[in-house]
Nucleic acid binder design. Structure first.
Lengths: 348, 348
DNA sequence: ACGCCGGATGTTATCGATCACATAATGGTG
DNA sequence: CACCATTATGTGATCGATAACATCCGGCGT
């Protein structure tokens, strides 16, 4: 807890370029140049500066630099507010990548919707200069951010929309593997519990699901849209069960799957005996549920890191082009919640 | 994605105190004083400044202020790195509180242990001035942070150790309610799956559990320590089952409980028929598991917010004293995973 | 030899705020 | 009404970096 030792050795203000310069016997500007582009200095000078920096354990004052250059070293991470969904692992990945690139990542929970949210965002942005923003929340007014501050904004997952549009592989593509898996088990009618459609990931999974069902010559057992929570999954499954012609449910994430399984259980249906359920995300707990969850494993850290990479690339057009973001480490994990379709076509 | 409209209206540099001053017909220093303590200005002057600020939509440049005053407006939030545990909701609460107080919260994942971690922390700290740090990770070298930078550090949950030491109510106190609940159901021997003991919360729950068992005249059915994950809970439960004299397991969080239930299931034991299981945290999914989880509901946002409040209080000794942190909104939630003890004392 | 060019380095101004000190306005007193 | 203690306001310096411009220097063409 908050101790502040009184016997502090020294305030020990950090060294400045002037001190480095004096020690190295050069001008402060030379030191500045050393940092900007040492190749412009004579080897001998460069070395003197280097030694002085090392001796003083110099590190530049980002505040001062930022004041002068107007460049910002802070990035904004927008995460959902009170929603049970939280992209924690993606955030971790993103934070690590940002840090590595010398940026600071400011996390802000965006709650609510509409004007309130807009106002909140505006206030945050005016609180200080941000170099860019990475949003884990679908922002309708992407425009807003840009209109207000004209900073690059990357919405995690949105690239997928573009890729799918181009017919390229998208994050949702594992949905196809799920459908194939269920088809192989003899399921003919599959239902889908989709995530909120303002989320790119939810749109993708739904779109790929629809296409895969069509391509495989299966029938659509119904689609229910729900928020990213077990409670919503429960309700959605109950809605689907009003017209239970399916033998499998593909849920857009593991929480939804958990809610769906519970709903089936409450109706006296067994999983996977009567209905198979497949989730998405492979939460660490999913392997230990009863039944354990067939799901899609995702490397969420990598995804967060990749989204951040995109943002960094946008900030620094000179640098390496961002690694083409793509579905990283996605794979279908078969577990107990999916099994052969029952002989008699039917639930209920 | 990253659009940057070319038809940008204007760079529209933000107004400075000089512009405000000119518009108000006063000196820049007067404007500065207005912000620092407007009561020192004559009412008429104050009003002129106020109007000018409003007209120009002025907001101070924190970078410049920070350079001059050496004050920092950034706080550090340390979160676990690759661990499956992530205090997302606490982080949200903390972030919101920090924002409200005008601070920026920089999130950093602290991975690994020992020297690597220390080095990483050192590098982060020297990357810029931080006003304080809030750690959701137990940091052994709390000293480190302070030695290096002498900033206030609050480790979330640590106040509990102190409070328990003082015989005051602590975060772990609901453990007593759990034991009482199980005792009322006829359980005489309870086992505990404890969290990693470097975490204050884990220590608290274990300590209160031990005391409650003793006070209630029950027997300790064994304690196994585990990381905060379902997998670890599974292993811990298996270890406990080597000597299965208990009829109930109290797990230090919901993930551990999930793992334990799975382990019991794999041994052919029913929950709660043969063994009752109680978790802690009340994850949103826990109500939908089969069986649904008896657990302790926590207002994690409030806890995060309260931890941040402590930090803010430490930063600003003049301000209001931090609200005495305490177990907020904790309550035992009874669900299916706990039930009457089996007639025959025994598992197996 | 001269002048000119370009690369390496030095000097001074600047970013936008606060600090330290100087000065002007105010007000109470004898 | 002069005087001094306060209070209110203005002026110039400063935080630590980069930008802009000036200067120095060696080599090369004519």
């Amino acid at each position: 807890m908050t101790q502040t030792p009184a016997d502090a050795p020294q305030p020990a203000r950090a060294a400045t370029i002037y001190e480095v310069a004096r020690l190295a016997g050069v001008s402060h500007q030379t030191v500045s140049r050393y940092m900007a582009d040492r190749s412009k200095l004579k080897a001998a000078t460069s070395e003197k500066v280097e030694r002085a920096m090392a001796e003083l354990n110099y590190s530049p004052n980002l505040t001062a630099r930022s004041l002068r250059t107007r460049a910002a070293y802070r990035l904004l991470a927008l995460v959902p507010g009170s929603s049970p969904y939280f992209p924690s692992r993606m955030l971790n990945g993103a934070a690590a990548t940002a840090q590595e690139a010398g940026y600071h990542l400011d996390v802000v929970a965006l709650e609510g919707t509409g004007p309130d949210r807009t106002e909140r965002l505006r206030r945050i942005l005016e609180g200080g200069p941000f170099a860019g923003a990475l949003s884990f929340v679908p922002i309708s007014g992407t425009d807003l951010l840009q209109a207000q501050e004209r900073i690059p904004v990357v919405v995690a997952g949105e690239y997928d929309d573009k890729m799918r549009g181009q017919g390229r592989i998208s994050e949702g593509s594992a949905a196809q593997a799920i459908v194939a898996h269920l088809a192989a088990l003899g399921h003919r009618r599959i239902a889908h519990i989709a995530g909120p459609q303002e989320w790119p990931a939810a749109r993708n999974r739904l779109a790929v699901y629809r296409k895969a069902v069509r391509d495989a010559g299966l029938e659509d057992g119904g689609v229910a849209e729900a928020q990213w929570s077990a409670a919503a999954g429960y309700d959605a499954a109950r809605a689907l069960l009003a017209n239970p012609s399916f033998t499998a449910i593909f849920a857009a994430n593991d929480q939804l799957a958990i809610g769906a399984i519970r709903a089936l259980h409450d109706q006296g249906l067994r999983v996977p005996g009567d209905v198979s359920v497949v989730g998405w995300d492979d939460h660490p707990e999913s392997a230990f549920l009863v039944p354990s969850l067939t799901t899609v494993h995702m490397d969420l850290e990598a995804q967060g890191s990749s989204a951040m990479g995109q943002l960094l690339a946008a900030l620094n057009p000179g640098g390496m082009p961002a690694a083409e973001p793509g579905p990283t480490g996605m794979r279908l994990v078969l577990r107990e919640s999916s099994g052969p379709a029952p002989n008699q076509g039917q639930a209920d």
